[in-house]
C-alpha cells in the first residue's frame, strides 16, 4: 500500500467540542493503515496534552490516556508549537507525554512537507 505523510493538526481544547476526541479516532485508523502519521498541537490544542485531565464535573470521559497509548500504534511524531505553550503559561513539563516543541515557523515547514493535512 502507498504510504503517505499524514499530519493531524489539533487546534482546539480537549473538551468543549468533540474535535479532539474524534481526531484521535482518525489518528488510530491512519496508524492501522500503516501511514506515516504525525500530530501537531497548536493554539488551544496544546491543552489536549496537559497533564491531569479531570472531567468528572462535566460528566465526560477523559481521554488523556489515549495520547499515552499512541506509542503502541507507532505514532511517535508529536510536535507542539512553543509559542502556543508560552502564551498559555505552559512548558513541555506540563504535558502528559514526551513531545518535540518547535517554533511556529518550523511547524509551518513541517506542515508543508505533508501529503495529507487534517485539521481538527
Amino acid at each position: 500500500m502507498t504510504i503517505k505523510k499524514f499530519m493531524f493538526v489539533n487546534r482546539k481544547a480537549p473538551y468543549g467540542t468533540v474535535y479532539a476526541l474524534e481526531s484521535l479516532e482518525v489518528v488510530l485508523i491512519a496508524a492501522a493503515f500503516e501511514q506515516d502519521v504525525s500530530l501537531a498541537f497548536l493554539d488551544d490544542g496544546v491543552y489536549q496534552l496537559k497533564k491531569g485531565h479531570s472531567t468528572k464535573g462535566i460528566e465526560m470521559k477523559a481521554f488523556e490516556k489515549t495520547y499515552g497509548a499512541l506509542e503502541d500504534y507507532d505514532v511517535t511524531k508529536l510536535y507542539v508549537d512553543e509559542e502556543s505553550l508560552a502564551a498559555r503559561g505552559l512548558t513541555a513539563d506540563d504535558l502528559c507525554i514526551p513531545v518535540e516543541t518547535m517554533s511556529r515557523a518550523a511547524l509551518g515547514k513541517m506542515i508543508e512537507e505533508q501529503d495529507v493535512v487534517l485539521s481538527f
Partner: peptide, 20 residues
C-alpha cells in the same frame, strides 16, 4: 462506513480538501 474510508481517500486522492 468506517473511518478507514477517510484514510483511504487521503491515500488514493491527489488532494484531500477539508471543509470545516
Amino acid at each position: 462506513s468506517g473511518l478507514g474510508q477517510l484514510v483511504e481517500a487521503g491515500i488514493q486522492s491527489d488532494r484531500l480538501v477539508t471543509f470545516g
